[in-house]
Design a protein around this nucleic acid. Sequence first.
DNA 1: TTGAAAGCGCTAACAT
DNA 2: ATGTTAGCGCTTTCAA
Lengths: 341, 341
Amino acid sequence: MTKQPPRPLTLRDVSEASGVSEMTVSRVLRNKGEVSEATRLRVQSAAKRLGYVPNKIAGALASSRVNLVAVIIPSLGNMVFPEVLAGISEALEGTGLQPVVGVTDYLPEKEEEVLYEMLSWRPSGVIIAGLEHSDASRAMLAQAGIPVVEIMDVDGDPIDACVGISHRRAGRKMAQAIIGAGYRRIGFLGTKMPLDHRARKRFEGFTQTMAKAGIEIADQEFYSGGSALAKGREMTAAILARTPDLDFLYYSNDMIGAGGLLWLLEKGYDIPGRIGLAGFNGVELLDGLPRQLATMDACRREIGQTAARIIAARYANAVMPEAEIVELTPTLTLGDTLIRG
Amino acid sequence: MTKQPPRPLTLRDVSEASGVSEMTVSRVLRNKGEVSEATRLRVQSAAKRLGYVPNKIAGALASSRVNLVAVIIPSLGNMVFPEVLAGISEALEGTGLQPVVGVTDYLPEKEEEVLYEMLSWRPSGVIIAGLEHSDASRAMLAQAGIPVVEIMDVDGDPIDACVGISHRRAGRKMAQAIIGAGYRRIGFLGTKMPLDHRARKRFEGFTQTMAKAGIEIADQEFYSGGSALAKGREMTAAILARTPDLDFLYYSNDMIGAGGLLWLLEKGYDIPGRIGLAGFNGVELLDGLPRQLATMDACRREIGQTAARIIAARYANAVMPEAEIVELTPTLTLGDTLIRG
DNA sequence: TTGAAAGCGCTAACAT
DNA sequence: ATGTTAGCGCTTTCAA
């Protein structure tokens, strides 16, 4: 038994049902142009009665206006990106613009595909995570003739606009706090992700500042895959088994930091006396831990909002102002795991 | 630095650059129809050189085929939904279909708006969370003439296809396990979300089975907003302050359950002897906790995969087979917080 | 194997 | 305030 799908309704159907020209129906449905109250009501009731849903494909083709903003991020599982998205949605509210999300899994080839696919829908703007893209991706973005906002990071050369924090500076700042608090035997625990450029830059900034103070990272541990919390435990156990005299552990994200914290508390370590801890991100989750992990928030929501506002402004003006770079400043929270310097 | 073309490139530009008719260029770019190897190469190199990105808006209008699947979910912050999404993306890989996500924040009005917006892009299918929708939403879905898969839940009347678990049955199953393990003074801790129908159904199934065994919920506590982990602590403290003799706490999600677990361990409660615990969802996070929380997984990834496969199958056949209902069976994990019955 | 013509459903720009 | 006309950039159909 195969029922053929009904033909979707068109403006013409509404026009015939209401006895009003297609053009005027179109005006009513878009709240555009002067239409008498009587006509408006007739059209609206006809449209509603029929269950008409406008065809944006045709509309977009005719008007060359698309109310879509392409948002390209590495992952949805990270919690960081849903928060950025929330900021974007919030700022887009009421502008008529709609975010459309594409996920790259941190893979440049996939980023290229997703970008191509999204650009083929002719969005009114692109918000894309990071400053590192393949040549092809950069070319597409530059050619598209629409506003492009690269987010999360400002350490690099943006194609157009850019909103984020300096991850290098963040790494340095954390290093200063740790050194200032008197820790000297420092271990680093991170993700095995050569393509996570922001984590890499934080690490670089961190080690640089350490080096200036004559301190070298005493040990490191990397992971990939699995439950971050569980990995945090395992890695912490492993690094301390190998290098028991570490007095500080710097985690590349709060989730593994939380795992480490739980493990250390169970083992009875004195925190932050015997050993200090810090993570990165300011994940809301952390509020519920037995101790508050030192961390640095990455201004995720604000990044999303600002990026969206840039796109919305350009959409409204229909012009391309000068490129802009917005650097936000992450806040360091010492919590209970980093001795107050 | 090349200056941006003010006008995006069209098929005609590629046609002129390659000296091949628009029609043949179109055929090459879509791998459709017979084209000689020589022509194919000329067209491809011209397209690549110019940086041509096809206009899917025009293509979709002309062919009335859109490779988009609308996915409508209540939230991205919940971790549950990104996992469903991952399942969808996975199953759509290689089908030529692309998921497009819309978020409703658990609000029926917003669901209606998002749905209207998405349907106006004439997607090839809709995957939507839950079976409860406004009349207008149901009408839109029924009228759209495209496959609709309602997911997560099977307790209700689907519009078309449906993939999920029975939350009532899940609630009952958990109640049986708890009763079977000998617990009698049971507290419930949940979210203050009248619109989370799945949580509500679990609760109903739970209390029903309890009632049959002559047990009434001894106390309840609800929350909204804030860090779930932190709320789990607070609520657990509150409910036990009020009703100290509770011997089991059933949490409506794993995150608050984890908060409760951490709090109880700190306070030195004997788990699961003095008091048992259970959550819902099987969140990956739980692996890293000091004890494994009893939980029931909701088959999130599998739900996404199955739903996507239904859409993809119909897309390929271009027909509308009979509606199908797929009920998956959640697995109960006793972990370390529910005495083995 | 290739090309020419005729729309897809809507809206911009003009009429009236 | 309302209607008419001419496309938007592509694909379908049919002809060569």
